[in-house]
């Protein structure tokens, strides 16, 4: 018995001290990974923005705002900026909109087997890597020998340059993105719809509200915070888009689909200009923070009303 009691004669460390010492060891692995591989690199990117770094000699020279000004004066940066926002706008509407439509349709009693099949079909693209599906969609979009143009021309419509026409290319990227991601939003929105208490919708229906009116005037306002979350989530993800365009179009035709991360990648790794690449990354971070804050602000105001 005495062995299991904390030893009193040994002037025991006070509990706080014991806990603090234990906390140190428990936190050490996660915190060192976090500091070394997230925090320091993120800070380094910010510092690099103000330096000229020679990547072979590793000599650094302070250049102030030169890198940021270089990026902000680069027409290609603004093209990538516009492209990214164009993509985010369409993809967020497509993903959350289609997700909401299907969530509304699925929010009813359906046979179990049916639900299994639907979840399989709508969620499989979410699960598979973007790189892989981009290769498959490249084949689908191929101009002369692609699947899509085969069916389009067989019903007498003209061939479309899905990836080669600069007015269409970004739309094609958006279509693939919505196909790949809306199932994710569908599941989140469906869960939100199903969490609405039955009493509320039933009361509305007893008062003579039709299913459409119930959906738009009762259910949508009730799940507005979840919709807002989905839009923000889609926006943050969309602003970082890279691999789909990298594989589908390499940013082309021309610069019609070059994204901000792609611009950053090219500056840092293709041109080996660490300063400009870091500046582009910093601008991306600031853009994400601003867009998120604006959305949350506008959103909470709209939700409150």
């Amino acid at each position: 018995m005495t062995a299991s009691v904390p030893q009193k004669d040994d002037a025991p460390a006070p509990l706080e001290k014991v806990q603090a010492r234990a906390a140190f060891w428990f936190l050490l692995p996660a915190y060192s990974l976090y500091v070394l591989f997230v925090l320091l690199p993120a800070l380094a990117t910010i510092v690099f923005t103000f330096l000229y770094l020679d990547r072979y000699t590793w000599t650094a020279e302070f250049v102030g705002f030169d890198n940021i000004l270089y990026v902000l004066a680069d027409g290609r940066f603004w093209t990538s900026f516009r492209n990214t926002f164009y993509f985010v706008f369409l993809a967020a509407i497509g993903n959350v909109g289609l997700g909401l439509v299907f969530a509304a349709v699925l929010d009813r009693a359906l046979p179990k087997a049916m639900l299994y099949i639907l979840r399989l079909a709508f969620f499989l693209p979410v699960l598979v890597s973007t790189a892989l599906v981009s290769l498959v969609w490249q084949f689908i979009y191929s101009s002369d020998l692609g699947v899509l143009n085969y069916y389009i021309t067989s019903i007498g419509l003209p061939r479309i340059g899905w990836l080669s026409d600069e007015r269409v290319a970004m739309i094609s990227v958006v279509i693939m993105d919505v196909w790949k991601h809306f199932g994710f939003f569908m599941i989140i929105l469906l869960a939100a719809l199903q969490s609405i208490p039955r009493e509320i919708t039933e009361a509305a229906e007893m008062d003579g509200s039709g299913p459409l009116a119930t959906f738009f005037f009762i259910k949508i306002p009730m799940i507005a915070p979840v919709i807002l979350f989905c839009v923000t989530y889609a926006t943050i993800g969309g602003l970082q888009m890279f691999e789909s365009v990298r594989i589908l179009t390499s940013g082309g035709p021309g610069d019609a689909t070059t994204s901000m991360v792609m611009y950053m990648y090219e500056q840092a790794f293709s041109s080996q200009d660490i300063g400009a690449g870091s500046a582009a990354a910093l601008v991306l971070l600031i853009t994400i923070v601003i867009v998120t804050l604006v959305q949350l602000k506008l959103g909470t105001r709209a939700v409150d009303q």
């Binding site: 990117t45 602003l239 991306l284 971070l285």
Partner: peptide, 19 residues
């Protein structure tokens, strides 16, 4: 530690690569 949720992966790649 939660600040890490806001760091986009692209932000850390440049220092990681050259480091």
């Amino acid at each position: 530690m939660l600040l890490g949720l806001m760091v986009p992966p692209a932000l850390v790649l440049i220092p990681l690569y050259f480091g």
